[in-house]
Design a protein around this nucleic acid. Structure first.
Lengths: 152, 152
DNA sequence: TATTGTTATACTCTATAACTATA
DNA sequence: TATAGTTATAGAGTATAACAATA
């Protein structure tokens, strides 16, 4: 079977189609992030902080799916770069409040714009109705499979 | 923002939707594979062998995206379990020809059936036209993004 | 005693280099 | 000299355990 036919093979399962696509998308995003001095996890963390203020560092780790011990080095880097600020919570002095800075917001917005532009380029030949159906099914699948795996 | 809204957020990029879905799908497949005594890579290798006879071990590694050094332990396991057979190529005695056995075919078919059934369950509420559009866009995206990343 | 952030440790996965036997 | 398969080593990524400060 030719490589070109491989993806269109109806016998291939969803995971066999979706996982390689995810890998390829990340690969395509990498240079866009690196141009802004960010690693993938840096961007994920910054994007989460931009979407909504996150109470504590632990909550941020949970929200981004990153381990609480692994998110530390990311926050160290981001703080050193001036993209986030950390401060002890005055109410609960065990907790650390993380906030995105103005420059951090600029950087994450710049990355987001570049990524969306790249993705629009990918979808240039796809009809609008197909795009909408794609996103619909994508969200439906995510909801279903998260439910199976214990909702996480 | 509530967790349920997170996936439907139109500001989230494709990768941020697709990668977690891929992870979740693999997680959902795991128990089905383990029930047949297979790991994920075992299944990927067996499935590739079932799809088409692969000339050599190296070719098999390239086709499945596995490192040529890492596929060895998988083939060792699969051979020990009687799911594949290995034999030196008589024409080029450096090369090893790998073939799937009858029991290997049974096992991979059993896994495939279970996985497809699981996925059908996931898509139970999705209209046929949406499914078709989903797969269309999925294949289109894969083609585009592979092209960007050097077609591999 | 439990929890937040942190550090240290171990374990998995992967990539690279080096070895053998063939060509 | 180059290639297929193998082994050994080192690196990155992850999870687990243990610790200090606070509740």
């Amino acid at each position: 079977m030719a490589v070109a036919d491989l993806h269109a093979d109806p016998s291939r399962e969803l995971a066999a189609r979706i996982v390689p696509l995810g890998r390829a998308l990340i690969l395509a995003e990498m240079p866009l992030l690196q141009a802004n001095g960010l690693g993938m996890w840096d961007y994920i963390v910054l994007a989460a902080l931009r979407r909504s203020a996150v109470p504590t560092q632990l909550e941020l780790a949970r929200l981004t799916g990153r381990d609480k011990t692994r998110i530390i080095s990311n926050l160290d880097d981001l703080e050193r770069a001036g993209f986030v600020s950390r401060a002890r919570d005055s109410a609960d002095r065990r907790a650390t409040r993380v906030e995105i800075t103005a420059t951090g917001t600029d950087v994450v917005r710049s990355c987001h714009t570049a990524i969306v532009a790249m993705e629009d380029e990918l979808l240039v030949g796809v009809p609008d109705l197909d795009r909408q159906a794609f996103l619909r099914v994508l969200d439906a699948l995510t909801g279903q499979v998260d439910q199976i795996n214990g909702s996480r």
